[in-house]
C-alpha cells in the first residue's frame, strides 16, 4: 500500500483521538502485513507458494475475504477476479521502452487465471495450478479503511475521515453537522479536481486508468486488466463510486471500469452515486 494514508478525527479531545487513531493505524498495518503479496510471511505468499500442491489453512478473516471476492466475481461476470494478478508477468508498466504482450504470451497465462477453479472452503484454500496467484490488492486497502472506521467508531469517535490512498471512508458528518466534501481527481491532471462529492457516513473510491499505465502508438494501456481478455480496461478514464462501505465502493468502481458501456447501467442497478469519465473526458454522473 504505497500511497498516502491519513485519518482525520474531530469532535473529541486530543488524547482520545490519538488513542483511536493509534488503534486504527495499527490495524491497517496488520492487514497490510497479513495480505501483502510482497511479504514472504503473509498469508497471500503462503497460499501462492502452495499453488499446485497442498491446501493452505486459513482463518475466519481470510475466509470472509475470499467469500467477498467470490461474490464480486459472480456479480461482475468474472471481470473482478483475484487470480488475475499473474497478468502482471506479461504486462510490465515500468518497462522501458514499453511493449504490448503478444496474444500468445497472454494465452499462455490463461490456465492460471480463473477464480472458478480455486478450491476453497471456510478453513482452507488451494490453488490448483502451479504458478497461480491470489492477490488481495483489489479489496485489502478498502477493507482496511472500513475496519479503521469501525475501530474509531467503537472508540466513541463520531466524526472522522479515513483516507487510504484515495479510498475514503467517512464516519458520520463533520463535527459541525455538515457533510464531508471530497474532491475527485481529474484523470488527466493530477493537480486538478473535476468534481466535489459529499459524504455522510459513506465511502468513496475511485478507479482510474492513470494510476499505472504506459502509452504506445497513441494508445493508453492501464493496470486494470480484464482477466477474460488479458487486456487493459480502456472505456473509461476513471470511475468514482459512493457506497456505504469503502470495500463496496472500491469493488463497484473496479467492476465499472471493466464493464465498458454497461458501467452506468451496472452502477444504477447497485443504487449508488457515481461519476464516470469516458475516453474523451466527458462525465456521466448518477444524477
Amino acid at each position: 500500500m504505497a500511497s498516502v494514508h491519513e485519518i482525520h478525527l474531530c469532535g473529541t479531545d486530543r488524547a482520545h483521538a490519538e488513542r483511536a487513531a493509534h488503534d486504527a493505524i495499527a490495524d491497517v498495518k496488520r492487514i497490510e502485513a497479513k495480505y501483502s503479496r510482497y511479504r514472504d510471511d503473509s498469508i497471500t505468499s503462503a497460499i501462492n507458494r502452495a499453488a499446485g500442491y497442498e491446501a493452505v489453512a486459513i482463518d475466519d478473516e481470510t475466509a470472509s475475504l475470499l467469500r467477498y471476492a467470490d461474490r464480486c466475481h459472480a456479480l461482475s461476470n468474472g471481470s473482478f477476479d483475484i487470480t488475475s494478478g499473474v497478468l502482471r508477468r506479461v504486462w510490465d508498466f515500468k518497462r522501458q521502452p514499453p511493449r504490448v504482450p503478444s496474444q500468445d504470451e497472454i494465452d499462455a497465462l490463461r490456465p492460471l487465471i480463473g477464480w472458478q477453479h480455486v478450491e476453497w472452503s471456510d478453513d482452507h484454500v488451494r490453488l490448483p495450478e502451479r504458478g497461480m496467484e491470489l492477490d488481495f490488492g483489489g479489496i485489502g486497502k478498502e477493507y482496511a479503511a472500513d475496519r479503521a472506521a469501525t475501530i474509531c467508531r467503537e472508540r466513541g469517535i463520531a466524526h472522522a475521515l479515513v483516507n487510504l490512498g484515495g479510498d475514503v471512508r467517512a464516519i458520520g458528518s463533520r463535527a459541525d453537522g455538515s457533510p464531508w466534501r471530497i474532491g475527485i481527481r481529474h484523470p488527466r491532471n493530477a493537480d486538478a479536481t473535476i468534481a466535489t462529492i459529499t459524504l455522510d457516513d459513506e465511502a468513496v473510491a475511485t478507479s482510474g486508468d492513470y494510476e499505472r499505465y504506459f502509452e504506445l502508438d497513441g494508445c493508453r494501456y492501464c493496470h486494470l486488466l480484464d482477466p477474460r481478455t488479458g487486456m487493459p480496461a480502456d472505456h473509461w478514464q476513471s470511475a468514482s463510486v459512493v457506497a456505504p462501505l469503502a470495500i463496496l465502493a472500491g469493488s463497484y468502481a473496479t467492476i465499472a471500469m471493466l464493464a465498458c458501456d454497461r458501467a452506468p447501467a451496472f452502477l444504477r442497478a447497485q443504487r449508488v452515486r457515481f461519476l464516470l469519465v469516458d475516453k474523451e473526458g466527458a462525465q456521466i454522473a448518477s444524477h
Binding site: 490495524d27 475466519d60 478473516e61 470472509s64 475475504l65 467469500r67 467477498y68 467470490d70 461474490r71 477493507y143 472500513d146 475496519r147 469501525t150 475501530i151 467508531r153 467503537e154 462501505l245 470495500i247 463496496l248
Partner: peptide, 10 residues
C-alpha cells in the same frame, strides 16, 4: 458478504 467481513460493523 461485505457486511459479514470481521470488524466492518461496529
Amino acid at each position: 458478504a461485505a457486511l459479514a467481513l470481521p470488524g466492518i460493523l461496529p
